[in-house]
């Protein structure tokens, strides 16, 4: 992997003694879309804020494109764009003026053609002379994205990009993220919408209570932790699960047999179950299977991770 961002042992403990982040190690490859998943207060924003220079870490080191984020912060930060979670924009400025400001602030000479392109891509060009306070919430978020892109960053951080955003804008945002990736931009987004990670990410990191519980390729994660579920609609309702049927429960007042299994487990799978049903003389009328979503995996992981830590403590 051609690493563009490397986080080593980064932790943050506040003066109050609260540990927001606990020795996080993370490598991000050039051009990938990485989703950082976690519940509220897990440490997602803290991690991003440390990488971007807004929060000072208590320990650890970060390199961006080979530049140390502390010692060579200018080179490191030039390569980073940040879209924060809060709609923090200068209300009295116009869209165009605030984008020009951002580009220069990041050490780049004015480039109105590029700014125009970014604004057009975000459907903001018509609003370029509007004061930001006149814009809707969704438009303000687009302005924040434009501000983060006009200095042509290599790595773009999107902190909860679609929180409180309508469906249309969310779809637009996803399209934009894919387009950015095609141009070689590395994207790191935090979200608690699993759907978002599932839709877009190449790799997923799960964070809870300041700890990075795992980092895995999305497909691998789904395969490794994804369970499949088979619902068998029975011809006659059952009062109890017949003996010899492992991993099976009854649902729907005994009209449905629910079978949860991992496809890679030995002896598991639909054919095996069906053979056992036939042997037991149980007739059925319909079959329905579905795989567990990233959401189920996530809930399980966070629950187990926190549980393990509580036991350790």
């Amino acid at each position: 992997m051609d690493t563009i961002l490397s986080v080593k042992g980064v932790g943050k403990t506040y003066a109050s003694g609260h540990t927001a982040l606990d020795a996080v190690d993370l490598d991000i490859g050039r051009g990938e879309i990485f989703a950082l998943l976690g519940p509220n207060g897990a440490g997602k924003t803290t991690l991003i804020s440390i990488i971007c220079g807004i929060v000072t870490p208590s320990s650890g080191s970060i390199t961006v494109a080979g530049f140390d984020a502390q010692r060579e912060y200018k080179q490191a930060r030039r390569r980073i764009g940040l879209v924060p979670q809060e709609l923090s924009v200068d209300m009295f400025e116009t869209v165009l003026a605030t984008c020009r400001f951002s580009r220069r602030l990041f050490g780049r000479a004015g480039h109105d053609a590029l700014i125009e392109q970014v604004l057009r891509d975000l459907s903001l060009w018509d609003k370029r002379d509007a004061k930001i306070m006149e814009l809707s919430g969704g438009m303000k978020r687009r302005v924040l994205i434009a501000k983060a892109l006009v200095h042509e960053p290599d790595v773009l951080f999107l902190d909860e990009p679609t929180a409180g955003v309508d469906v249309e804008l969310r779809r637009d945002m996803w399209r934009l993220i894919h387009r950015l990736r095609e141009n070689g931009t590395t994207i790191i987004l935090t979200t608690h919408y699993i759907e978002e990670a599932e839709e877009m990410a190449d790799r997923v990191g799960v964070i809870a209570k300041g700890r990075l519980l795992l980092v895995e390729e999305k497909g691998e994660l789904m395969k490794r932790l994804g369970k499949r579920e088979l619902d068998v609609a029975l011809a006659e309702p059952l009062s109890a699960v017949p003996p010899g049927l492992d991993g099976v429960t009854l649902a729907n007042d005994g009209r449905t047999l629910r079978y949860v299994f991992r496809p890679e487990d030995e002896g598991a799978g639909i054919p095996a179950l069906l053979r056992r049903l036939e042997a037991a003389g149980i007739a059925f009328t319909d079959l329905e299977t579905h795989k567990s979503s990233l959401e189920d995996i996530f809930v399980g992981l966070v629950h187990d991770g926190v549980h393990e830590r509580e036991q350790a403590a």
Partner: peptide, 9 residues
């Protein structure tokens, strides 16, 4: 946030 994250001393 923008000032703090900018490459400016």
């Amino acid at each position: 946030f923008e000032l703090l994250s900018a490459p400016i001393s």
